[in-house]
């Protein structure tokens, strides 16, 4: 029997000694993590929905009447320098008249050929990834600072509401995630502690024979790692099993990418490792 052999055999014995306790622990942690997985999916799906809500947000800046047509180009230059601006279109008085005629179905400005009263404007499309209420205010103030724009219109309310919803989801995710991870940590720690209780005599004997703390604790650390990892994987297994079986209609669920899922499983496994340490700490003192 080699050292690694002993550690693996001991790990097997830990599970074999009380399989029901191990299964119970795995199921409890799986359910906790499943709750977190579902929240994660919910958060991603709502993020996509909110993203769609704010995508294609445009601003329209109206050029001041006193600005001559020849000076309008400088506003375009300012807009081109703003990173959040994806593109912008200049609407001249004539274009505005044509658009109005298209919308109404008839040219309402017949007879106003010399003094077209419609304002000139810039329709600004923003990059989806950079749309925030703060950025919109920033662009607003840049354009206002030019002194050539009289009014700026955009749907600030929709963006602010979307941001508020995201912030609530993020906060809820942090709280829920924290609680779930704490519960999983305590559950696994308790399971490992029970496992060490049944082995107090053996651990003491091995300490007397000169076994080091790392050697003694490794089977329990691995036990925690496995319990955590298996629970996390089972949670995601359940998600993938039910995802295509539930009649969700048009509701599109966004599942995190596989790399993120693997990382999450590894994180829970590491949480199990910490639980293993916390569980065995007293027994090997």
């Amino acid at each position: 029997m080699t050292r690694p052999g002993y550690i693996l055999a001991e790990l097997g014995r830990n599970f074999a000694r009380s399989p029901l306790a191990a299964i119970g622990s795995i199921l409890a942690v799986t359910l906790l993590l499943l709750l977190f997985d579902l929240f994660w999916i919910g958060a991603l799906s709502s993020k996509q929905f909110l993203g769609k809500m704010v995508s294609g947000v445009t601003m329209e800046g109206f050029v001041s009447e006193e600005v001559p047509d020849s000076a309008v180009g400088t506003i375009g230059d300012v807009l081109a320098d703003i990173p959040a601006v994806a593109e912008f279109i200049y609407i001249s008085r004539d274009s505005a008249r044509a658009e109005l005629a298209r919308l109404v179905g008839t040219d309402l400005l017949v007879g106003y050929d010399q003094v077209n009263p419609l304002p000139r404007s810039f329709v600004i499309t923003l990059r989806d990834s950079l749309v925030t209420s703060e950025r919109l205010r920033e662009i607003d103030s840049i354009l206002t600072a030019t002194g050539k724009i009289s009014d700026i219109y955009y749907n600030a309310d929709r963006i602010v509401r979307s941001e508020q919803t995201r912030a609530i989801i993020r906060r809820a995710g942090l709280v829920l995630g924290g609680l779930i991870f704490l519960s999983a940590l305590l559950n696994l720690t308790n399971s490992i502690r029970l496992s060490t209780r049944t082995r107090t005599v053996g651990l003491r004997q091995m300490r007397l024979l000169g076994a080091g703390k790392i050697f003694l604790s490794l089977p329990f650390l691995l036990e925690g790692f496995l319990l955590g990892g298996v629970s996390a994987a089972l949670g995601w297994g359940a998600v993938f099993y039910w995802k295509d079986r539930l009649p969700l209609g048009d509701l599109a669920l966004i599942v995190p990418p596989l790399q993120h899922i693997i990382l999450a499983c590894l994180a829970v496994a590491c949480l199990g490792l910490i639980s293993g340490y916390l569980g065995v700490r007293k027994a090997i003192r």
Partner: peptide, 15 residues
């Protein structure tokens, strides 16, 4: 207690 006689005897060598 959780190790067989053989494993108990070998323990100092394993350690």
């Amino acid at each position: 207690p959780s190790l067989t006689v053989e494993q108990n005897i070998l323990l100092p060598l394993v350690i």
